[in-house]
Design a protein around this nucleic acid. Structure first.
Lengths: 228, 228
DNA sequence: CAGTGTGAAGTTGTTCACAGCA
DNA sequence: TGCTGTGAACAACTTCACACTG
């Protein structure tokens, strides 16, 4: 009780939050095979991770298993989705209806998650007025009134880097509380606004590094690798 | 020397590999302002991180700074890019020329990084034969001969989840050694093949969790948040 | 002083070991 | 025996403290 008494509020480790959706995908795929139970070791095995880690991750959600058999799939799905907030309707605005934005709008997975992009905005007159999978693309100038009227607090930024900060500023001014940013810039926002930066290629450096090792560690490398 | 003697080859922590490209972006943006030096505290400040961490991250690249003034920007950029392997030409094939695939192909940032998608593949006859920013979309059946001829070892998967495993199997059979997978499945590949799974929405759970806290921690919540 | 650079301390997250159970 | 569940040991990463430099 010396310092940082209320610095961290949550307690749920980020790695856990990132692993749970993956489990969820896998568990759902198992469910499709008409299975009813799943065990932590089975999940761990599929992801090449540690069974205890899976057990502990699941424990965060409040789900409890039956010894020897594992977890009831339906209950587990419920528990994870509830815990992650996938059950509440999470409506978002998206700014930047380019390819990445379109990919997100078309992304099937979101609907399993209660996550819905309800309007898209762009400044390109060619895009304004069109519709992408049922979502209208509006001019940015419309964002303000809609955000207020619909009480939307999620904003997604898929604009070019050069515009991202400016859009973020607008979003903040208009009541958006949480920004999911795909532009490769570190947005500066007032305290209290949540920003999640998702750099599309942040794992590129990781994979390049692994490939480098691959070469460095095999004496017979280069062309040889592919030679039949 | 008890066990796992050669389990880990690299030594470069993944968090470091993920932070360095972000620094690189920022440093380049500073360079555009005709600055010549940059300090670790300045970088840390921009990202809200710890100056020592920045210093240590940079130390991995081999760059060295001058006390009191910091690092020479041009040298630092060199050093980071070289270290991350952004200087070597990294050519990749992409399978799945949908929106996400297109977004990647159009993605500006890659060319700063020596990363180039040199051909795209799809099974959709409507897409085959088209060209996206100068990159031809070919039928999947062409992948084999091209991979062999061009010695491409990187594969990017941006297909729907249902096809991803099958494509991965093909890639492996055709000499691809490293797969950057955007489909929401955990690919199963033979040992020795590098897989980097990038779940587009893995940070979604993180942001939803933060928003949940936001609500849980403000007694006057709901509608009030936006009320003028 | 204001910065780099580094060893030591602290924190967080992962893995191990094992108790309990059907 | 094969699983859940948990406390303890361990490893990885981050932050602190401080020596050093111009």
């Amino acid at each position: 009780m010396e310092k940082k008494d209320l610095v961290k509020l949550s307690g749920i480790p980020e790695p856990v939050l990132k692993r749970l959706p993956k489990y969820l995908n896998y568990i759902k795929s198992i469910q499709l095979e008409d299975k009813f139970m799943i065990s932590a070791p089975q999940i761990a095995d599929h992801f090449g991770s540690d069974p205890t880690q899976v057990t502990k991750d699941i424990a965060f959600t409040g789900a409890t298993g039956k010894t020897k058999v594992g977890y009831n799939i339906a209950e587990l799905i419920d528990s994870i989705e509830e815990f992650l907030g996938f059950r509440r309707p999470n409506e978002a605005f998206l700014v930047g209806a380019g390819n990445l934005g379109t990919a997100l709008m078309k992304y099937d997975g979101f609907k399993d998650i209660g996550f819905k992009i309800i309007a898209a905005f762009d400044s390109d007159p060619l895009k304004v007025g069109t519709e992408i999978t049922g979502v209208k693309v509006l001019h940015i100038s419309k964002l303000r009134s809609l955000a207020e009227r619909l009480h939307v607090i999620f904003g997604i930024i898929t604009t070019p880097a050069s515009e991202a900060q400016q859009i973020a500023d607008l979003m903040v001014g208009w009541g958006i509380r949480a920004i999911w940013n795909f532009a490769p810039v570190n947005l500066q926002v007032p305290k209290g606004i949540i920003v999640q930066n998702t750099l599309l290629y942040d794992s590129l450096a990781v994979i390049l590094n692994k490939v480098k090792e691959l070469y460095d560690n095999s004496p017979e490398n280069e062309i040889k690798i592919i030679a039949k």
